[in-house]
Simulated assay, not measured.
Amino acid sequence: MITPSPRPWVRAGAMIVALAATLSGCGGSTPPTATLSPSDTQALYIRENRASGIPHRFGDTDPHDWGQVSPARYPVHGLDAARYQGMIDWHAARGAGIRFGYLKATEGGDHIDPAFAQNAAGARAAGVPVGAYHFYYFCRPASEQAAWFIANVPKRRGDLPPILDMEWNHLSPTCRIRPPAEQVRANIREFSRIVERHYGTAPVIYTTPEFYARNDLGSLRGSEFWLRSVTAHPSERYLDERWSFWQYTGTGLVPGVRGPVDLNAFAGSEANWQAWLAARSQG
């Protein structure tokens, strides 16, 4: 869930200006660029980045040809974000079909995402179920990281269960170690045990294909997974693994969100989603 920065959105400005000018010059209904509101500019950009296989009100700056098994086959979609997306207009996102939001809250044992509190409050106000995720840091004990997450993410009735984000971060300037697989799995169990005891619901484990395989996460019986797979259905990347969430792109576009954002699908039907919320939301 290393969320992309909004810079591609900024770089697209020249394209939007040119397109708007062309449409205006051709007698189209688009107003001159100088009068385009931010929401109009965003809507234009999303229209120019429509992608097959995902819900029609979203876009994708780097789409994949999904073929027969596409994300659009799933009825419930959501996003995950961090400070890079700034403040999200959750009412606009909900109107476009966003049904849930996960936000980065903490990393390691001393980092807080500065956008978490305000974006979480905005999601709740808009009626979008919201949850927090912790980005794991391999140079700090699991117990300290769990305590840091608990200290900074209030327990709130109705919020989604926590997410433990487990992936390699080769860009870290302070910690690039890759512990043995047995230690990684022990870290997951310890963090999960502490967090579940506090929130009354176990965290979902987010991971990537390479991390999953390298650390044999399939042996974590009873764990619930959020799987990243941006070029194939999860069944092709994680053989025989069950999942609740599928992150299908990191370059999605959604009304109300500044710049590219991760998009995700829930595994089941609308009825399955409601049942999952009832069973897994914080009590």
Score class of each variant (00 low, 15 high):
G250K: 11
A123G: 07
A213G: 10
S24Y: 11
A126V: 02
A279S: 14
L171E: 12
N152T: 06
Q68K: 05
F135M: 09
V230R: 15
G122N: 13
L220D: 04
Y45R: 12
L160D: 04
A72W: 01
A132P: 01
L171G: 11
A123L: 04
T41C: 12
L220V: 14
P141A: 00
V204H: 08
E196Q: 15
C139Q: 01
A123I: 08
Q183W: 13
S5K: 07
W243P: 08
P260W: 10
K155L: 10
M1I: 08
G25A: 14
S281V: 06
R140S: 15
R221G: 12
A43M: 09
E196G: 08
S269Q: 02
F191R: 07
E196P: 01
D159K: 05
R83G: 00
N187A: 05
A12V: 00
A92S: 14
D62E: 14
T231K: 14
W90E: 02
Y84K: 04
R258A: 13
W168R: 02
Q68R: 13
W276C: 05
A93Q: 01
P129E: 08
A117T: 14
H56V: 11
A267F: 15
Y45H: 12
G218W: 10
L44D: 06
G158K: 06
P234Y: 06
P209S: 02
G28D: 09
S70D: 09
A232W: 03
C175Y: 01
L277E: 04
F225S: 11
Y136D: 00
